[in-house]
Every structure is written in C-alpha cells, then in structure tokens.
C-alpha cells in the first residue's frame, strides 16, 4: 500500500508544485499573495472544457488555446486590478485577489452552470501494474509534463535575458527600475506565467477528476505548499508542492480523507510559528 500512496502523492504533488511555482513567481515578482490562484486552476479546467468539449478542437489546438487564453487573462488582471493598487496596503491587495476569485467563480458558474463537467481529451487513462503498484498513465503524464515545465522554466530563468530581468525584479523593485528594467512589463509577464501554470494544473486536475469550481480548494493548496517550502524560494515552492501531495495522500489513506487538509494546514501553522522563512527559504527574508 505504501508504494501506491507514495506514487500518487508524488504525482499529485507534481501538479501542486506546478501551480505553486506560478504562485511563487507572482509573489516574487510583484509581492502579491494571489488568493485567486486556486480559481486560476478552475479557469484552466474550463478553458479545456470550452476548447475540447464544446469547440471540439484537436488536442494540440486545445493546449494552445489554454496557454494563450490563460496568459491573456493573467496579464489583463495585472494591468486592470493589480497595477492600480501599487503601493497600497497589503490587505487591499490580498482582498482584491480574493474578490477576483469570487467574481471568477460566479462568472464560471453563470457561463457553464453549477454542474461539474467531464473533460474529453485523448490523454491516456489506462493503468499498468508494476510490482503490485497501480501506475495510472494519466498520473505519469501529469507528473512528466509538470517536471518538463519546471525544467523549461529553470532554463528560462538561468539562460535568457528576460529570465534574468525577472530574477532581478524579484530581488528588488527599485533596484530593477534604476537598472533600466521595465518592471511593469516584467510583472505582467509574471502574472501571465502564473496563470498559465495554474491552467495547466487545472487541465490535469480536471482530467483526473471533473471540471468544477470545487477544484479551487485543490488549487489553493499551492499556498501552504509555497509557504512550507519558503515563500521566497522557487525550488522551495516545487518541493513544498511535492510535500503537500505526499501529506495529502498519506493522511487520506492512513487517517481519513477528511483529515487530509488539516495535516497540511497544521504543518503550515507550525512552519509559520517555528520557521516562517520556510523549510528552504533564507532566514533573513522570513520576516516582513
């Protein structure tokens, strides 16, 4: 039983890590804790419903549609809602993202109706068994794509000029401005990427379960994941995601499914009390 639990924990954790990476990117670039990230996951799921189930686009086009639409939504949100609040109190900015998630949820339920939708994609749904462990192909694919995205972003940050500018902006806004970086543009791109990563997570979660606004709760797990890993640390976000996936699966298998979230949030509280800079963050940055 344990290998089975570990496998699904790591597979789910990879998806969480992807969503958490988007969350951490937005936080690092713009200092905004995006409580709408969970809703961005849902948006991704319903973009997949629109393209695949309603428009009957081929799968490759569906993927492109999701990425482009999610990027535009993220950029538009930065331009319309986040930028005007630059320099405002933390509560205002947190609250605007919360209000945004309320609005997005309402819009989705109005457009698509409150019933969950099944996703029809050609993604493999079979299972193969290795030494008694049921390996779901979809889980494997989700984990594989997540790791591919993570790898691509690592290369992007390391080797491109724009990636360097994003890292610099995350390091200090005013410093970035005096160095000639178009900080506003960098921020917009960060929001676009954050939204795309959440949407890809949403695509997989919708295929694993169903597309519904219930996925928001799963998307919001990115929040504890990022903090547990270290709010300022990009690798920390990914490891945090894996950890949350493992904890969830272990708790629901060995304790009870209802208790899964509690273990995660209790760990979050413990980390905040004992090691606010996170398991992989740097100490000096832990306090605000």
């Amino acid at each position: 039983m344990l290998p089975q639990v570990l496998f699904s924990g790591l597979a789910l954790g990879s998806i969480y890590g992807l969503v958490a990476l988007g969350f951490a990117l937005v936080f690092k670039a713009t200092d905004v804790l995006n409580f709408a990230q969970g809703m961005f996951v849902v948006v991704g799921a319903f973009l997949a419903v629109t393209a695949g189930t309603q428009l009957h686009l081929p799968f490759a086009l569906t993927l492109m549609f999701i990425v482009v639409a999610a990027a535009l939504i993220g950029a538009a949100i930065q331009a319309l809602l986040i930028r005007p609040l630059t320099g405002r109190s933390m509560l205002s900015i947190i609250m605007v993202t919360i209000a945004l998630s309320i609005v997005l949820r309402a819009l989705i339920e109005i457009i698509f109706g409150p019933q969950p939708r099944a996703l029809t994609t050609p993604m493999p749904t079979g299972v193969f068994i290795v030494e008694g462990v049921r390996i779901s192909q979809l889980h494997m694919l989700a984990a594989g794509v997540s790791w591919l995205c993570l790898g691509l972003f690592a290369l992007f940050f390391r080797f491109t000029t724009f990636g360097l500018q994003m890292r610099a902006t995350a390091n200090g806004h005013e410093a970035a401005l005096v160095s000639g970086i178009n900080v506003d543009f960098v921020n917009r791109v960060a929001w676009a990427i954050g939204s795309v990563l959440a949407a890809i997570g949403g695509l997989f979660l919708a295929q694993l379960q169903l597309a519904s606004t219930e996925l928001e709760g799963i998307g919001l797990l990115a929040l504890p994941a990022v903090v547990i890993g270290g709010l300022q640390s990009i690798p920390g976000a990914i490891i945090g995601g894996l950890l949350v996936g493992l904890i969830e699966q272990l708790a629901s298998s060995y304790v009870s499914p209802r208790s899964a979230d509690i273990f995660v949030y209790t760990l979050l509280l413990l980390v905040l009390m004992v090691r606010p800079w996170g398991l992989f963050g740097q100490r000096e940055l832990g306090r605000v």
Partner: peptide, 23 residues
C-alpha cells in the same frame, strides 16, 4: 503567531487556523 510573524505571514496563520478550527 502575531508575536512572532508579521504581515503576510500572519494573514496566512489566520488562514491556517480557519481550516483547523472548522475541522
């Protein structure tokens, strides 16, 4: 937690508390 952490970190602790109490 407000004795130890500030700002965002404290907000997050109230968020965590919510889930724990409701559980």
């Amino acid at each position: 937690p407000s004795l130890r952490v500030r700002g965002l970190y404290f907000v997050l602790s109230t968020f965590a508390l919510h889930y724990i109490v409701v559980f």
